[in-house]
Amino acid sequence: MYSISLLNAVLAIVCLSVSTFVVIGVTDSEDDNHRVIIGYNRIMMSEPQNETYIERIRKNCGARMCLEIVNRTRTVWKNGTKIVPIYKCRDGYKELNGVCTPICTNDCEYGTCVAPEHCECFVGYASDENDLRNCNPVCDGCEHGKCISPNICTCNDDYQWDADQNKCDPICESNCPNGKCIAPNKCACNENYHLDETLNSCMPECKPDRINGQCISPNRCQSTSP
């Protein structure tokens, strides 16, 4: 009974082993986990160790007594000191679930924070050249408009979306017959037509100019005389 009580007392002491903080030296050394060592803990502890010992057992060897030597193993507790480094995350990193992870102050919308203030963008987005924290949507075209998500544009005023060409086309109120709308309310006329700036429309040309007639198509006149 006495030996059992003593063993329990020893185990209780081991469970309450004392840790003492000792700063042996501060270093700026880094590891692959984005940590730096800022000091050390010296821990006073007891650890179990296996120990081999010899046990001599008396045996009856018939007319005489003899000894049998047996090797046995037992667990003993030995006091020792363990030096444990103290880490902190490098600048630009924070601890999350025991791991030093990079910090991106805008939470890296549309991407993943892979380094301090540096986002790796999702498919369909690209890094902003002026700010690697931002991921901007990518559109094929979108001239005269704003890319609001991958390949989706909102056109500027006086422009309209052409889904077939995937671009923003200018709007001309006259629709530019016999020509092409090249800018808001600005037509470029086909060959043998000229722009009537008052009507913002392309009118046919007749050469030479006809008197008392109306040019109804290139080099084709209609008489206006009675």
Rank of each mutant, 00 (worst) to 15 (best):
residue 129 E to V: 01
residue 120 E to K: 08
residue 156 N to L: 07
residue 137 P to C: 07
residue 222 Q to I: 06
residue 131 D to G: 06
residue 182 I to K: 10
residue 28 D to V: 07
residue 69 I to F: 07
residue 40 Y to N: 10
residue 90 R to F: 01
residue 41 N to R: 10
residue 183 A to W: 00
residue 114 V to K: 14
residue 25 G to Y: 04
residue 187 C to N: 01
residue 32 D to L: 07
residue 47 E to P: 03
residue 8 N to P: 01
residue 92 G to H: 05
residue 12 A to G: 13
residue 172 C to R: 05
residue 62 G to M: 02
residue 78 K to T: 13
residue 160 Q to V: 12
residue 154 T to I: 15
residue 143 E to F: 01
residue 165 Q to K: 07
residue 112 T to C: 05
residue 23 V to Q: 13
residue 203 M to V: 14
residue 194 H to Q: 13
residue 2 Y to Q: 14
residue 201 S to M: 09
residue 73 T to D: 08
residue 214 Q to L: 13
residue 114 V to I: 15
residue 209 D to V: 15
residue 64 R to K: 14
residue 84 V to A: 10
residue 144 H to G: 03
residue 7 L to K: 15
residue 148 I to A: 09
residue 120 E to P: 01
residue 8 N to H: 12
residue 162 D to A: 00
residue 27 T to K: 11
residue 123 V to A: 15
residue 215 C to R: 05
residue 103 I to P: 09
residue 218 P to M: 04
residue 192 N to Y: 03
residue 62 G to R: 05
residue 193 Y to N: 06
residue 201 S to K: 03
residue 50 N to G: 09
residue 33 N to G: 08
residue 114 V to M: 11
residue 226 P to T: 13
residue 220 R to N: 12
residue 7 L to S: 12
residue 138 V to M: 03
residue 150 P to K: 06
residue 199 L to G: 11
residue 187 C to H: 03
residue 64 R to S: 14
residue 62 G to C: 02
residue 113 C to S: 06
residue 39 G to L: 03
residue 71 N to P: 00
residue 140 D to Q: 14
residue 88 K to C: 09
residue 221 C to E: 06
residue 198 T to K: 12
residue 164 D to I: 11
residue 46 S to P: 04
residue 93 Y to G: 10
residue 178 N to K: 03
residue 192 N to Q: 04
residue 199 L to Q: 14
residue 21 F to S: 10
residue 70 V to L: 13
residue 224 T to P: 09
residue 102 P to L: 00
residue 141 G to Q: 03
residue 45 M to A: 14
residue 167 K to G: 05
residue 195 L to S: 04
residue 52 T to I: 12
residue 55 E to L: 04
residue 10 V to Y: 08
residue 186 K to C: 00
residue 9 A to R: 15
residue 121 C to R: 04
residue 145 G to H: 02
residue 10 V to P: 08
residue 217 S to R: 02
residue 65 M to D: 15
residue 58 R to A: 14
residue 65 M to Y: 09
residue 210 R to H: 08
residue 136 N to Q: 01
residue 146 K to V: 14
residue 128 D to A: 02
residue 101 T to Y: 05
residue 133 R to D: 02
residue 98 G to C: 08
residue 188 A to E: 15
residue 161 W to S: 00
residue 177 P to R: 00
residue 55 E to T: 11
residue 196 D to K: 04
residue 226 P to I: 11
residue 136 N to T: 04
residue 215 C to W: 03
residue 14 V to F: 03
residue 41 N to Q: 10
residue 157 D to S: 11
residue 57 I to Y: 07
residue 178 N to E: 09
residue 215 C to H: 03
residue 79 N to F: 13
residue 118 H to D: 08
residue 220 R to V: 12
residue 102 P to D: 02
residue 194 H to I: 11
residue 131 D to V: 00
residue 84 V to P: 00
residue 41 N to D: 13
residue 158 D to R: 09
residue 80 G to P: 05
residue 110 Y to G: 02
residue 160 Q to D: 09
residue 208 P to V: 04
residue 185 N to Q: 11
residue 125 Y to D: 05
residue 100 C to Q: 08
residue 123 V to R: 13
residue 165 Q to I: 05
